[in-house]
């Protein structure tokens, strides 16, 4: 084992409500210090993958029925979600999920529970404010009154307070203007470099994800269909067409799945 992996997901299968299978043998790895992108269209199972890793799945009546998840080389199958956060795995959930009735400051205070029992000095809130000065101006205000972009900043800010080794980021670009997306992603890249946090980044916006990630996985109906270093993925014809909206073959509006299905059949026929 030469490679230093923060996260290793091995062939996991996930079922919701004991009936709906969503992940079908998914595997991925996050090397220490890297940003790895997990892409795929709506409903592919990206958020489910993150929830399986952070163990928030049982809260939604989901269950890992096969495979393992290892964080820093250790199987985390039996750990409670809050204990996992305290070990340094922080999940920034889809839709930001700030505590709307709490102030910005109180949201950060809530995240200090991630340091309980870690024996590390508390993170100064100024660290968050240095990355997101706008939060400082609004620190006494309720999080529910923040704009979407500011709420995303707060969600990432909470993660900073937790001093994680690995951050799972679920669609940080969701519903934000292109300018804000650019701002937030440049800060994500800075956090990765300056704080040494490894990241698993879920996105539908492949272009911005590729801009910061070094490796990418593309997910479809609960399985990885393509993976590789981002420089290779951006040259891949299918990826260019269906995730980057490039290539202009006229089929741009068709779903990737349809075309792949067609290709598969063609391959099978020939």
């Amino acid at each position: 084992m030469a490679e230093d992996l923060v996260l290793e997901v091995n062939n996991i299968e996930v079922v919701y409500n004991r009936t709906i299978q969503v992940l079908r043998g998914l595997s991925l790895r996050v090397p220490r210090g890297a940003i790895v992108a997990l892409l795929g269209s709506n409903g592919a199972g990206k958020s489910t993958t993150l929830k399986a890793v952070s163990r928030l799945l049982p809260l939604e009546d989901g269950e890992i029925t096969a495979g393992q998840v290892a964080f820093e080389g250790e199987d985390i199958g039996q750990i409670t979600p809050h204990a996992l956060v305290r070990r340094g795995l922080f999940h920034v959930m889809e839709g930001r999920r700030v505590f709307e009735d709490l102030t910005v400051e109180e949201n950060l205070t809530a995240a200090t529970f991630a340091l309980s029992g870690r024996g590390v000095p508390p993170t100064p809130f100024d660290l968050v404010y240095s990355y997101f000065p706008r939060l400082y101006e609004r620190r006494k205000g309720l999080a529910g009154y923040l704009s979407g972009g500011e709420q995303q900043m707060l969600a990432i800010g909470r993660a900073l307070i937790a001093q994680p080794k690995l951050m799972l980021l679920d669609e940080p670009s969701l519903g934000l203007s292109p300018k804000l997306v650019e701002e937030i992603f440049s800060i994500i890249a800075r956090i990765n470099a300056e704080q040494g946090v490894s990241m698993l980044l879920v996105e539908q916006n492949a272009a911005v994800a590729f801009a910061v990630a070094s490796y990418g996985y593309i997910l479809e109906t609960g399985k990885v269909v393509i993976d590789g270093p981002t420089e290779r993925l951006v040259r891949d014809q299918d990826v260019r067409e269906f995730y980057l909206g490039l290539g202009g073959s006229g089929a741009a509006r068709k779903s990737y799945r349809e075309v792949k299905h067609y290709k598969r059949r063609k391959r099978w026929l020939s």
Binding site: S54, H91, R97, A111, F113, S116
Partner: peptide, 12 residues
């Protein structure tokens, strides 16, 4: 306010 989010920030 949000039980899932509470877990996600490390609250027991």
């Amino acid at each position: 306010g949000d039980q899932g989010a509470a877990y996600s920030v490390g609250i027991d």
